[in-house]
Simulated scan of single mutants.
Amino acid sequence: MSHVQENRRKLVARVRRIGGQLASLERAIEGDEECGAVLQQLAAVRGAVNGLILQVMEGHLRAHVAGNGNAKQQDELLPVLAVLRSYLK
């Protein structure tokens, strides 16, 4: 089973939260929100999407690249994941 399917509930919940953030952003743009507030919401959406990307990417690397059972390969992923986390922050 794919790591995406295994984590379906968490991923869907995360996507729904992002959808709520986007709806709020749309309301802010359609309304008379200050540009600072809109920029803050945009940054929040970007952070949420980056978090989702990181979660799926980490699952992919652990499941398909390093292999779930190989401890040595899993350990070798740690620096790669650290770089991805810092980049997608």
Rank of each mutant, 00 (worst) to 15 (best):
H64R: 12
G59H: 09
V80A: 05
A43V: 07
S2W: 06
D75K: 14
V49R: 05
R27A: 11
G51F: 02
A37I: 09
V4R: 13
K72E: 15
V56F: 03
M1Y: 09
G69V: 09
R27T: 06
I29N: 13
V4C: 08
K72M: 13
V80N: 04
N70V: 04
I18L: 02
I29G: 13
G47E: 07
N68K: 12
V12W: 00
A28C: 13
N50E: 09
D75N: 15
Q73W: 14
A37V: 10
L61H: 11
G67V: 06
V15S: 06
E76A: 12
H60F: 13
Q5G: 11
A37Y: 06
R17K: 06
V45L: 04
V45Q: 05
G19L: 01
L54D: 06
A63Y: 13
A48D: 03
G47M: 10
G69C: 08
V15I: 02
G36E: 14
S24C: 10
L78Y: 10
L11E: 01
N50Q: 12
L39Y: 07
V15Q: 10
P79Q: 04
I29E: 13
V12A: 00
L81T: 03
L39K: 05
G36C: 11
G19M: 00
L54C: 07
H64I: 10
A66I: 15
L52G: 08
A23R: 03
N7D: 11
N68C: 14
L88D: 01
N50T: 02
N50P: 04
R27M: 03
L54V: 10
A23T: 00
I29Y: 10
L11N: 00
G67F: 06
L77K: 02
L22C: 08
L78V: 09
R85W: 02
G67D: 00
A48T: 03
A63K: 07
S2N: 15
A48C: 05
L81Q: 04
L84Q: 00
H3R: 01
A43Q: 12
A66M: 14
V38F: 05
G19R: 00
H3C: 01
H60G: 08
K72C: 15
E58W: 05
E58M: 08
R46F: 06
L81A: 05
V83F: 13
A82D: 03
R14D: 01
R17V: 01
N7Y: 02
Q5A: 15
V45S: 10
Q5M: 13
M1G: 11
R9P: 11
L77Y: 07
L84S: 00
V38R: 00
R85E: 04
V15T: 09
V80S: 00
R16H: 07
E76N: 10
A37M: 14
L78N: 03
N70A: 07
G36Q: 10
V15N: 03
S24A: 14
R46I: 15
E30S: 14
A28L: 14
